[in-house]
Amino acid sequence: MGREKHYWLLKTEAGEWSWEDQAANGGLSNWDGARRVVGVVSVVREWYSDGEDDGGLVDVKAVGEMRRPVDLKEMKEDVGLKGFALFRQPRLSVVPVPEDVWNRVCDLGGGFGEDGRGSGSEDDV
Rank of each mutant, 00 (worst) to 15 (best):
S18C: 04
D54T: 11
G56F: 13
R36D: 12
W19L: 02
L28W: 09
V41H: 08
S49L: 03
W31S: 00
E4T: 11
D50I: 13
T12V: 05
A23S: 04
W8L: 03
K11Q: 13
V43G: 03
G51H: 12
T12C: 11
S29M: 13
R36L: 13
D32F: 07
V38R: 14
A24F: 05
G26N: 10
D21I: 00
E46V: 13
E20Q: 08
G51L: 14
G51K: 11
G27K: 01
V44K: 04
E4Y: 08
L10A: 04
V58D: 02
S49D: 11
D53S: 06
A14T: 05
S42D: 12
E16I: 14
S49C: 06
G39A: 12
G51Q: 15
E4D: 06
D50G: 06
A34P: 08
E20C: 04
A14Y: 08
H6L: 00
W8D: 02
S18Q: 03
A23V: 03
K11M: 14
V58K: 11
G55D: 08
V60C: 13
A14P: 09
S18T: 14
G33K: 15
V43D: 00
A23P: 02
A34K: 09
D54N: 05
A34F: 08
G26D: 10
V60E: 01
E13L: 11
L9Q: 12
V58W: 15
S42R: 12
Y7T: 00
W8T: 03
G39P: 11
G56R: 04
E16G: 06
K11F: 04
S18M: 15
S18W: 10
L9P: 12
D53N: 08
N25A: 05
D53I: 00
L57Y: 05
V43E: 07
G55S: 14
D32H: 05
E4G: 04
T12D: 08
W31L: 00
E16M: 10
Q22M: 10
Y7N: 11
S42V: 14
L10I: 07
W19C: 02
V38E: 15
W17M: 01
W47S: 05
L28A: 14
W47C: 01
V37M: 07
R35F: 08
G15C: 01
D21Y: 07
R35E: 10
A24S: 13
R35Y: 10
K11T: 04
L9I: 05
R36K: 06
E13A: 10
W17F: 07
R45K: 14
G15L: 01
N30T: 06
Y7W: 10
G27Y: 13
N25E: 07
G55K: 14
D53C: 01
N25M: 05
E46F: 12
D50T: 08
N30W: 12
